[in-house]
Nucleic acid binder design. Structure first.
Lengths: 131, 131
DNA sequence: TTGGAGATGCGACATCTTTCGTATTTACTG
DNA sequence: CAGTAAATACGAAAGATGTCGCATCTCCAA
């Protein structure tokens, strides 16, 4: 299999696909198409191509079942989330995660419930890990 | 001036430039080049092109001083940070900012002081804006 | 065992990004 | 007021992404 240049981050469409794959656990091209928004109108071959490239990039693996490839994520969603946050923190928040949370919390779009949830989360982390 | 298609997010290089522009407040092509890592070795015309395109996209404005354009950010860093976080939350964290903080806080790198600082900020935000 | 439905492989094309070289314009200075 | 150093404008090339059509391959049901 030809190896593609490895960019460690997913492109727009790759993230769209990976999100479904994380939710499904695994799936074929048909499974993927069934999950995409019907308005998406993506050709079967396009979806197949995208998955094939994602495999070449190392984001997914495949296993043949009958004549169909079943794709699975290589990286867990948690791990990818953490990696993305680290990258964003470095590139846009001077490498200080705290400033990232600060900005998040300052955002007008955030609800009171979300804030309270975050607060509880912090409280738990503080009492558990720094007693 | 020709208008470019507006993608509301900065590309890799555009973010690199915008970061310097946010730090400088404003600056010419020369100012930008002076701030980039010396190993970067970017041609003067490349930097000029990037800034021109950023203006076409609406990320910066310019003002002529003598024969030189002085560029300024249109969007403040805070606002762009918030926007980026909102987008990331939607695309990778099911639209729940709390899950984003959860992932962040699970990371070992964050200090107790940082956590406490955030907690204080949250407390203030909750009591001030949701009395 | 074989014909065909359905899957994969691949090349092509349009668009966007990043980079640069060349051509042109411009505003000081002598 | 002209010459020139320095700036801008523009086109092009190389690589990445997103999409699709066509060619080929492959099971399995009759």
């Amino acid at each position: 299999m030809r190896q593609r240049k490895r960019n460690e981050f997913l492109t727009e469409v790759e993230l769209e696909f990976m999100t479904e794959l994380w939710a499904m656990g695994e799936g074929s091209v048909r499974d993927m198409l069934a999950r995409l928004n019907p308005d998406r109108n993506l050709a079967y071959t396009s979806a197949a191509t995208i998955l094939r490239i994602m495999e070449q990039k190392g984001f997914v693996t495949s296993e043949k079942l009958g004549k169909t490839f079943i794709y699975s994520p290589v990286l867990e969603k948690d791990a990818y989330q953490a990696k993305t946050l680290r990258d964003l923190s470095n590139k846009l928040f001077d490498g200080t995660p705290a400033s990232m949370v600060a900005r998040l919390v300052d955002d007008d779009g955030i609800s009171e419930d979300a804030l309270k949830e975050i607060q509880a989360l912090l409280q738990r982390r503080l009492t558990d890990d720094f007693p």
